[in-house]
Design a protein around this nucleic acid. Sequence first.
DNA 1: AATGAATGAGCCTTCATTCAT
DNA 2: GATGAATGAAGGCTCATTCAT
Lengths: 182, 182, 182, 182
Amino acid sequence: MRADARDNRARIMAAADNVFGRSPGASTDDVAKLAGVGIATVFRHFPTKTDLLEAVLTLRLERIRDRALELAGSADPGTAFFEFFTQVVSESASKLAIAEALSAAGAAAGEEAREAGRGMREAFGGLLAAAQKAGAVRADAQFPEVYALLIGASRGATAAELDPETRDRMLALVFDGLKTLS
Amino acid sequence: MRADARDNRARIMAAADNVFGRSPGASTDDVAKLAGVGIATVFRHFPTKTDLLEAVLTLRLERIRDRALELAGSADPGTAFFEFFTQVVSESASKLAIAEALSAAGAAAGEEAREAGRGMREAFGGLLAAAQKAGAVRADAQFPEVYALLIGASRGATAAELDPETRDRMLALVFDGLKTLS
Amino acid sequence: MRADARDNRARIMAAADNVFGRSPGASTDDVAKLAGVGIATVFRHFPTKTDLLEAVLTLRLERIRDRALELAGSADPGTAFFEFFTQVVSESASKLAIAEALSAAGAAAGEEAREAGRGMREAFGGLLAAAQKAGAVRADAQFPEVYALLIGASRGATAAELDPETRDRMLALVFDGLKTLS
Amino acid sequence: MRADARDNRARIMAAADNVFGRSPGASTDDVAKLAGVGIATVFRHFPTKTDLLEAVLTLRLERIRDRALELAGSADPGTAFFEFFTQVVSESASKLAIAEALSAAGAAAGEEAREAGRGMREAFGGLLAAAQKAGAVRADAQFPEVYALLIGASRGATAAELDPETRDRMLALVFDGLKTLS
DNA sequence: AATGAATGAGCCTTCATTCAT
DNA sequence: GATGAATGAAGGCTCATTCAT
């Protein structure tokens, strides 16, 4: 039974990620239907809709953090930093929800999500520090504004539904502002 | 009655601007209550909730456009451009709704709102062109990505609830990317 | 001003007759619009929607009564009776409202409408009595069932949206039942 | 749960039959209250008020059809026909709704109700044909006008709120028109 | 543990009716 | 006297959440 339950939980979260990513106002029933379980099962795993939302948010934040951690070991910290930045913004463009997850990372209500946000920001902070140390990013840029830029670029790409070329040109502008002045 | 009605209409729009600015999912009743009118009065002026939303959106877009047009006559196009950019982002920071208005400017459903969005983008485009002609903004930056940057910065500032100093430092980074390379 | 008011009243009643004839659930506003007056004017003339409905009903009943009275003087009472019966049913077929007026004639709430119903039934009763006296309608048929038949035929024609030929054949059946047995 | 749900559904339909029979414009809430369930339960079983109305209509039509089918096997087709006619009209007299169901049987919107109407008319047509074959009903009467007569008599009885004696005398007149001329 | 049914609060919208010009 | 604006009380319908199987 444990395995079954765990399986259901995963299916529900995947469905929720999908559904809420497309339309944030979707109903819990939509999630249940897509997950192929009864609605009561959803509420058994997540007593509140908010709980479900937070679980999804947490998962997303952790995924982003993991991406950062993977790149953290890279030999070229500058490339790693810009690569991460680009990836996050690119995916935001196609997944409305990631951008929102990023902004919610700060104000998130639940403890778990807040913790995930902290972890993600920390990992990104590590990437930034390394890139600065390596001279790829200007040293006077502090974390808060760089992080705000990441959020902003993500949300801008999402909201404007940019085509990839425009998105890349936008990032080029942002990166020019971030790079060490020669 | 004409005067009274016009007055009410204005009060309703102000209330809607306020309420929807705080929580986009607010009910029409909330708007009515804040405006101090009965709910039927709101529906008399705006037959549909969508109509009300669009009227608010249109108003916001027009206000931003007007700001752009005011600055268009400025003697110093570079300053005018950056000043406008800063103002829009600053206000977004405190008014969630402006950022959303900016992003909705593209995909807005209603004809009126779409037209307002067009007007606003045009005015901003004028500011950008002048600034580029004056050599204040790099010539290879095209409108779409600069506009995306404006939206992104606004949304980023809003979502992250930045304090003014951080916001200014974020804008400094963005502006450094936009400025003509020396 | 008296003339103006009377004119408006007539226009409102005509509009109401029209509108309610088509869709019984129509709003008072629809009536006002069709009449070309403000809604408050309608309520000035008819303090309640029920009042308006009753006035329309009364008018219709009076019209039917007048038709009966016109035919009452006819030289051939049998023809007059069947002619009247046919006319009422035919018009019901195309004007939903007449059939309803006829059925409402009994239970109508307002004194005025009730009086109009009484008058109409009396006139129809006169037609029936004369036709029976002339030997055209069987003598054992009493008013209540003949009147019920008039209502029924009208409503049946209306509800079933009969084409004229079927309607006539239906009436032929009814009339065969009403005629004096030879 | 299946049993409970089926039970509730039946209770809701019974309540709807009752409520709409008395006042066709009744609210869904009235139905729910009479059925002793929450309003959402009504909407769970019938997603739209129209759906509920149609379900009730269908049920009524099917009941009438069943009555016709029962009588179809009778040894005396003439009696069977007139018996059916009388029964339908008698019940209409006390149940406004049946008469309306009958007229709606032609134009009903939903496929299910339309099908039920078809079935009912067919069964009634069988009764008529048999009665004609047996010489109890005049051979020149065609189905459409006889059916219109059934509807009309039902609606007339309902609308006029006839007492049983008058209703029977009205039917006697109708039947005299339908019987084979001797 | 999983399910589908039930529930009431809430939302958008309409309408008869009343005010103020 | 005529008008358009304002109003609150429904009404249809949805949704997060709770029960009972």
